[in-house]
Design a protein around this nucleic acid. Structure first.
Lengths: 218, 218
DNA sequence: ATTATATCGATAAGTATATATCGATATTTT
DNA sequence: AAAATATCGATATATACTTATCGATATAAT
């Protein structure tokens, strides 16, 4: 079963879109009207042809010798990734990681608005972290429904990851951004995307070992 | 140029190894001596054949009708990923994220030992975060050399990511685990592995949009 | 006006990764 | 003892993703 997504666009392409966006924001700030695939590619160490294919994927065409229209591209990417209309999200788990995520300024630009945190620790409940209130996790169902929140950011200790997930699903959360190292079991229709630090570290380690042992890496 | 690594093992395989490890740890705790590819596959929503191929990649063979030797597999994965002999690492940036990472208990199991943090904020320098001292970033070169640290975990604000990277490279850091959204420019031979939250969020968003619009997802 | 150049899109080819098939083998069941 | 079953490895096929080729086109240079 091949992984699907919005419009049959390959996931590697989806993952590159935010990179393109950041180059494009710069270009726009510089009042550049058009931008070439080769320029974008150079900035990101990619091949121009890949950039062109990716951009074709989201439906924007360029002009020979001219390039792609910067503003149009930005709008298309923002629309594709849902950055145009912000989604509200809860952070579940108000520990170190939850707090760090609550204070991360980049989410807003990416269409994500953290409205509150949840925890089960009474010493945290009622306090504010980065101006966001920490609620009792018992109230998640109530608030999810009332605020129409679909996205939950899971930042609890691994031991309680699955149990917390169950609570989130019961509460009505539809998409879970999982920052724990746990492989979560969820009912059909619930989306889980994991930030897999262990995998990332594994790649770093294996590259480092390769270099130490004298092999090439890129 | 195809991305290389230690032994010509595909990167997707490397990324799956930590998942296999966690299943295997469970099996060992349960005194299981052998484990089948089909069991591992089921736990991780993979195909048995993929598990077998991956395991063949790190050089462990199984037995028909029996499966793979649990302990041997664990040792092979730990060795491949360098989890057997711990590497020291610095965290650069003692803000929210740096602090969260300093307190993350999982790194030790993955062969990573955070020995100290660095920052340029005098209100933080000299203090301790999760029992680890915060040093003036000026001293990074000195300490990197003295302690033989190769890995730096970059957790500074995006604006200073490149400048900080330059300092790290000058200090002698060989591998950078980049938690910022910045594409870093580094000299040849320096390894960078990025934890790309924007890409991960992009995948989540695009899947969510797909579901909302009524398409299937897995 | 003609030629050169940068760039595009469409199609084709290549590479990397995942999956399927199938004979072989160790255990369990009959 | 024979048959059934679960599993493996090797080889082959299929899918997904990336990169190359090339004719077309808009601008700039001669």
């Amino acid at each position: 079963m091949p992984e699907e997504n919005k419009a049959g666009i390959p996931l590697p392409t989806v993952r590159r879109l935010p990179l393109y966006a950041s180059i494009l924001f710069n270009a726009r700030d510089n009042n550049q009207v058009t931008i070439s695939s080769s320029y974008i590619a150079k900035e990101l160490n990619l091949e121009p042809i890949q950039v062109r294919k990716d951009l074709a994927g989201i439906g924007i065409t360029g002009q020979p010798r001219i390039g792609f229209p910067v503003v149009e591209l930005i709008e298309a990417i923002e629309k594709f990734l849902g950055w145009d209309n912000t989604s509200d999200a809860f952070i579940v788990g108000a520990g170190n990681l939850g707090a760090a995520l609550a204070g991360y300024p980049g989410f807003k630009k990416h269409g994500l608005n953290v409205v509150a945190l949840f925890d089960c620790d009474y010493s945290k409940i009622g306090s504010k972290i980065h101006d966001k209130e920490v609620f009792d996790i018992e109230r998640m169902g109530h608030l999810t429904e009332r605020l129409g929140v679909l996205i939950g950011i899971l930042a609890v200790p691994a031991e309680v990851a699955q149990a917390t997930t169950n609570l989130m699903v019961d509460a009505g959360i539809k998409a879970i951004w999982n920052f724990t190292p746990t492989k979560l079991l969820v009912p059909n229709g619930i989306i889980v995307e994991r930030v897999d630090l262990a995998a990332s570290l594994a790649v770093l380690s294996s590259k480092l070992t390769a270099v130490i042992k004298g092999k090439k890496t890129n």
